[in-house]
Computed example of a mutant assay.
Amino acid sequence: MRTALVIGTGLIGTSAALALAARGVTVHLRDHDPGRARTAAALGAGTDAAPEGPVDLVLVAVPPALTAGTLAEALRAGLGRGYLDVASVKGGPRRELERTGLDLTAYIGTHPMAGKERSGPLAAGGDLFEGRPWVLTPTRETDTEVLNLALELVALCRAVPVVMDADAHDRAVALVSHTPQLVSSMVAARLEEADETAVRLCGQGIRDVTRIAASDPRMWVDILSANPGPVADVLAGVAADLDETVRALRALESGDDADRRAGASGVADVLRRGNAGRARVPGKHGAAPAAYETVAVLISDQPGELARIFADAGRAGVNVEDVRIEHATGQQAGLVQLMVEPAAAQALGEALRERGWSLRTG
């Protein structure tokens, strides 16, 4: 791949363009808002000048509702040798394209499983896809050369290719992406009119659950409108669990011992099933989830403190597998939780204490 045209310079399009440009591909940028394309170009994602002829790959990174129309225009104009999209749903756009009667042998649907709460070119980064799954949904009609171009794109973005059927993909993302967004938003909505005293008690648990609730509602309306059935199916299952859990909690309020035992059993059941489901979530680099030990370090809100912690961990020869930061309400301080292999936890704690860090135990 020597040349590419990225249509849509939001978070995903600009991030892909940055990764391609960094690896020597000449990238042309196009957006319905020329200002966004200029911003992406200024970030080093390519040029907003039109290509002189057909490019090797046309990457369409527009909202799902616009994906099929944008692809159809690009195909009719003969803008490239191969065409792909990065929409978060795959079945609908494919069927809409098929209804145009266009030759789709040069097209493949894809979806990088990466994103942020923020959108737009300024949120983009060339490392956004590194180590993340990138779904490819070829059909029997997909030209081998186009599949190879898509695989090259994934490799240049340092992602991990995953081949799936389009409708199976849509059912999967309904479970692992679209439903979590709605559930996160529903929990966060409970805080909108909550008493200020309750809000001040927010800790890491509520921050973890509501992190993605900060996402752009307009973007998510587009996504959910393109995949409503599978998301509704998953939510129906969640609703059934909620109903059972509410009944179990009401039973715990009962004065009857049998009711309380039944209630406790119901609550324990959903918690156990949650443990079992969480254990299936892949860990680092897609490997089986690992049980890490946490080294909790008190940190002041001063420039360079996080970098100093990681540098000190590196000097101790310990690899930090994951990190969480919990800010102290109303204070210029917080708690950094460093997740490491259990065998390395004691050595890291001792090394950090020697370097003057205050650790929280228990």
Score class of each variant (00 low, 15 high):
Ile299Glu: 14
Val60Cys: 15
Leu201His: 06
Arg273Val: 02
Pro303Met: 08
Glu350Val: 07
Val281Pro: 10
Asp31His: 06
Trp134Pro: 11
Pro282Ser: 07
Ser215Ala: 13
Arg140Ser: 15
Val281Met: 15
Gly334Asn: 04
Asp195Ile: 00
Arg218Lys: 12
Thr100Pro: 14
Ala65Asn: 14
Ala290Asp: 11
Leu149Asp: 09
Leu136Asn: 12
Ala291Trp: 09
Val58Gly: 01
Ala268Ser: 14
Leu18Ile: 07
Gly274Ala: 03
Val27Cys: 09
Glu52Ile: 05
Glu293Arg: 13
Ala45Glu: 06
Ala248Lys: 02
Arg2Gln: 15
Ala87Val: 00
Ala189Gln: 15
Gly10Ile: 05
Thr361Lys: 11
Glu98Leu: 13
Gly8Asp: 09
Met1Gln: 04
Pro121Gly: 07
Ile212Val: 14
Ala61Trp: 06
Arg94Met: 13
Val176Ser: 07
Leu306Thr: 04
Ser254Leu: 08
Arg132His: 07
Ala291Glu: 15
Val336Ile: 13
Arg81Tyr: 01
Met219Asn: 01
Arg280Val: 07
Gly24Arg: 04
Ala343Cys: 04
Leu306Gly: 13
Gln204Leu: 15
Glu193Arg: 15
Pro342Ser: 04
Asp170Thr: 02
Val267Gln: 05
Leu149Thr: 03
Leu122Phe: 09
Ala262Glu: 13
Pro161Leu: 08
Ala124Ile: 02
Val187Ala: 08
Ala188Pro: 10
Gly115Ile: 00
Gly283Gln: 12
Arg140Ala: 15
Met1Trp: 08
Ala288Gln: 12
Val58Trp: 01
Glu196Asp: 14
Thr329Glu: 14
Tyr83Pro: 11
Glu354Pro: 08
Arg76Tyr: 02
Leu149Phe: 09
Leu298Pro: 08
Asp48Gln: 12
Arg30Tyr: 00
Thr245Phe: 03
Glu354Asp: 15
Ser358Lys: 13
Gly266Glu: 11
Gln346Asn: 11
Ala268Phe: 08
Gly356Ile: 03
Val55Asp: 08
Val297Lys: 02
Gln332Ala: 12
Ala124Val: 02
Gln332Ile: 01
Ala328Asn: 14
Asp85Thr: 04
Val318Leu: 02
Gly304Ile: 03
Arg118Glu: 14
Ala262Arg: 15
Asp31Pro: 11
Val154Gln: 08
Gly229Val: 02
Asp143Ser: 12
Met186Glu: 12
Gly35Pro: 11
Ala124Trp: 06
Gly120His: 08
Leu298Tyr: 09
Glu96Asn: 03
Glu253Thr: 05
Ser177Glu: 00
Arg211Asp: 05
Ser300Gly: 15
Val318Gln: 06
Ala22Tyr: 01
Ala150Tyr: 00
Glu141Cys: 01
His327Thr: 13
Glu326Ile: 09
Gly101Ala: 09
Leu338Glu: 12
Pro63Ser: 12
Asp233His: 13
Leu249Tyr: 00
Val320Asp: 05
Leu306Val: 10
Ala114Met: 05
Val173Phe: 01
Leu18Asn: 02
Ala45Pro: 11
Leu97Gln: 12
His111Ser: 11
Asp257Phe: 00
Phe310Thr: 15
Ile7Tyr: 09
Thr100His: 10
Ala16Asp: 03
Leu84Arg: 09
Ala68Met: 10
Pro230Ile: 02
Glu141His: 06
His169Leu: 07
Asp31Val: 07
Pro230His: 06
Ser215Ile: 00
Asp167Ser: 06
Pro230Cys: 10
Pro282Asn: 06
Ala124Cys: 12
Ser88Glu: 10
Ala288Val: 14
Met339Lys: 04
Thr179Ile: 01
Val323Met: 13
Leu79Asn: 02
Val58Tyr: 00
Val323Asn: 05
Ala168Leu: 09
